[in-house]
Design a binder for these strands. Structure first.
Lengths: 235, 235
DNA sequence: CGCCGAATTGACACGGTTCAATTGAGGTGG
DNA sequence: CCACCTCAATTGAACCGTGTCAATTCGGCG
């Protein structure tokens, strides 16, 4: 649950009492295996959920099999936080790894003047806004950047997000994505993702081992994708 | 003002009385020339505005000059409708043509139980959601589609949106964008946009003349970008 | 008529894709 | 503990969609 506390309190200050209440929800956690569909495109969204552990991604698949990944869902992230509150999901959300998540309580079920209610509601709104920031950055990657720049840019975003929830630091973080997933996110072929990663390794910018990424020179990486460097977390 | 009425009432039913009130705002319309910045990235958004006439686009420019257009703002569209309500603009909004827009009234200035207030508030929320739909479609274009498919896909989106506000029909609509703008939106070079348009003309799928696009065979165009065909307007 | 931005064209270079193997690593059953 | 299986990562070579550069033409407007 640690990532959940960290992530939510990065969005809005949470009191010890609220954290305690949230902790109570852990019992309701639902587990899913890799590949499980957590949300289906076109379906009305249920109440927002928070990921406790594991990664997921938002994606669409075209009839001919081409896949586009719109973004990744990391531990602590709020799913189903979209603009204008509830609505229909714009993409499928699929677990990438084994994943555990909890549904946030229906706001109507919390007393209206409870601090928890306002804080959860605010956190969900801010999460929605950040999802939009990620979408914009993603469009920059796809529309403006070269393969090398896209990869550097995405790695920096993931590092930043993982660090916020305490699952990584300035230099390293766990990265369970296959090169195929990276390819479908970055609009590249798997083969080219492979070669791009090799180039980053050859130039001593990153290392990959044991499901972890190590950023050897984050500054250089940033300058690769500079001017579009992932936005720091602000609300 | 016609496009504004059409667009808003496509989002939420408006009574005659409400349309009358909105009409009163026309006097407050603000005009801008092509290239004028309507909203600056990072700046706190002001109250939402509605475009009465003219086109704009959301864009970011990288230090080296590369430009990415995230989407276009058409007559009747609501600007500053983003997830989680107000916040900082995620991109610059720049007028593409001469443009006239009106700020929507501050919600606090309308009596809380007025139907106008709830309807405007709902319309803004739904507009925010649709903006997100457009963003997702845009990502599909950039990440998954070839040049020809991207162009077809975008033209279909624009046709649809222009038709909703009564500025076009199933076959034709005014299109003030330069090929350079199209290129920066679609992640292509100007030269290639030119060749792509030529190919569409050669294959008798479209015609362009007098600042208007004529879709000769929308079905074929749709099948070009199929499976990702622009989503119809739903809320 | 003459100007200027936009559209168009041609030749060429290159980033990225495709196809088809091959290698490597984690997990399972005997 | 090893053989085996499977999926992910890696490699090479050929191909092609787009980009780049540099003119040239077109079209609207003063």
């Amino acid at each position: 649950m640690e990532p959940v506390y960290r992530r939510l309190s990065a969005l809005t200050p949470l009191s010890y009492e609220e954290i305690r209440v949230l902790g109570g929800f852990e019992a309701r956690a639902r587990d899913h295996g890799p590949g499980a569909t957590l949300m289906t495109e076109g379906r009305a969204t249920t109440r927002p959920s928070v990921v406790v552990s594991g990664w997921a991604c938002h994606q669409r698949i075209m009839p001919d099999g081409r896949r586009q990944i719109f973004g990744f869902v990391l531990p602590g992230d709020v799913m189903g936080a979209w603009s204008g509150g509830r609505g229909r999901a714009l993409a499928n959300t699929v677990a990438v790894t084994p994943l555990s998540m909890i549904e946030l309580p229906e706001l109507d079920h919390i007393s209206p003047d409870s601090a928890l209610r306002t804080n959860i509601s605010r956190a969900v709104k801010l999460a929605a806004r950040q999802n939009e920031v990620f979408l914009f950055d993603h469009i920059m990657r796809l529309g403006c950047l070269t393969a090398l720049e896209r990869m550097a840019h995405l790695l920096l975003e993931l590092r930043q997000r993982m660090a916020v929830v305490g699952l990584g630091d300035d230099r390293r973080f766990p990265m369970p994505l296959t090169q195929e997933s990276l390819a479908d996110a970055l609009g590249l072929s798997t083969v080219h993702v492979n070669r791009t990663l090799q180039q980053l390794r050859r130039e001593r910018l990153i290392e990959i081992a044991g499901g972890e990424v190590l950023l050897l020179d984050a500054d250089l990486l940033a300058s690769l994708a500079d001017g579009t460097a992932p936005h720091p977390f602000t609300s």
